[in-house]
């Protein structure tokens, strides 16, 4: 097959700002044989890939492959080059991500590839559940991949990623908290069903708007239309035409999903994901916190 990956699977009429960043399940089915396309499955449950996956898809494990085993950070440039190369990915490869839980972890992996400046990354709309719901083929066969050379590239931690210090400097500009309403108000210090990833203090970063990540998704895990997304973020959350937005959640995975929406579907020019998120902020000494449903005062 010599089909190139330039033609995206999502209709341009979707109106998304960067329609080429999102592909449909049908597009993936049509391009499985393309030499220049590598499909990566990124799940919360690491065993899920082994129970059946898209034929030819390779597994990427966010915990063992993308996170540094010691420091709370991502792997470094050499290791990233090794991991990408081991999946048969070169700098020219079109990498399509998909996964469980409406693509939480797929968006997270895509975002890490973005930090390393990988030129062509895409998300499969609807993720793993949609592929299976449509009765498409899955297999337990793990593809044999010959490692290829991926160049060692510096990670850019300033354009799409925010640190705690960046957030402190950001006060006065829009912040989006994508956690559940009870986490936002501070009534609970963890997400429902995830009690161990708790924090010492509950609440939210002052001035942050609450937009739970799932608001961006339809029941089948696909993204809502541009029109609906504009209403949710631009109007209801008050982002307007902002040129600088920071999103956060608990450990940075749900906010990767929102980062993708703001950056690529709505086309905001500067959107950073604060991956330290609440597990850093809510455990840090002397940082300002707001509780309750109000956004809270701008810290002085």
């Amino acid at each position: 097959m010599t089909t190139t990956a330039d033609t995206a699977g999502i209709d341009k009429s979707s109106g998304y700002a960067h329609p080429d960043k999102l592909v449909s399940t049908q597009w993936v089915a049509d391009h499985l044989q393309d030499e220049n396309v590598v499909v990566l499955e990124s799940n919360e449950d690491t065993l899920l890939y082994s129970t059946g996956h898209i034929p030819g898809a390779r597994k990427i494990d966010w915990h063992t492959e993308l996170n540094d085993p010691v420091a709370r950070d991502f792997i470094g440039p050499e290791e990233f080059a090794r991991v990408a190369g081991s999946k048969g990915i070169t700098r020219d490869t079109t990498v399509v991500f998909y996964g469980d839980k409406s693509n939480w972890w797929a968006a997270y992996a895509l975002w890490v590839f973005t930090l390393y400046g990988h030129p062509d990354t895409r998300l499969m709309n609807g993720g793993r559940d949609k592929w299976i719901a449509e009765g498409r083929e899955t297999t337990k066969d793990v593809p044999q991949v010959a490692p290829v050379e991926y160049p060692v590239t510096e990670r850019d931690d300033t354009t799409e990623r925010a640190s705690r210090e960046d957030v402190l400097d950001h006060f006065g500009k829009p912040l989006i908290d994508v956690r559940s309403p009870l986490e936002y108000t501070g009534e609970v210090t963890h997400m429902d069903g995830y009690p161990q990833e708790g924090t010492l203090r509950g609440g939210h970063i002052p001035t942050a708007a609450s937009v739970p990540w799932a608001k961006a998704a339809n029941e089948d895990g696909t993204f809502k239309s541009r029109e609906e997304l504009e209403r949710i973020y631009k109007e209801d959350a008050g982002l307007g035409e902002s040129d600088d937005v920071v999103a956060y959640c608990r450990i940075g995975e749900r906010s990767s999903h929102t980062w993708f929406v703001l950056r690529h579907l709505l086309g905001y020019e500067k959107v950073r994901n604060y991956d330290g998120s609440w597990t850093e902020w809510g455990n840090s000494v002397r940082l300002p916190i707001a509780i309750g449903a109000d956004r809270g005062e701008l810290p002085r």
């Binding site: 449950d45 690491t46 082994s50 129970t51 469980d100």
Partner: peptide
Amino acid sequence: PEAPTSRG
């Protein structure tokens, strides 16, 4: 079945 780790 979609939670193989918990099942394991």
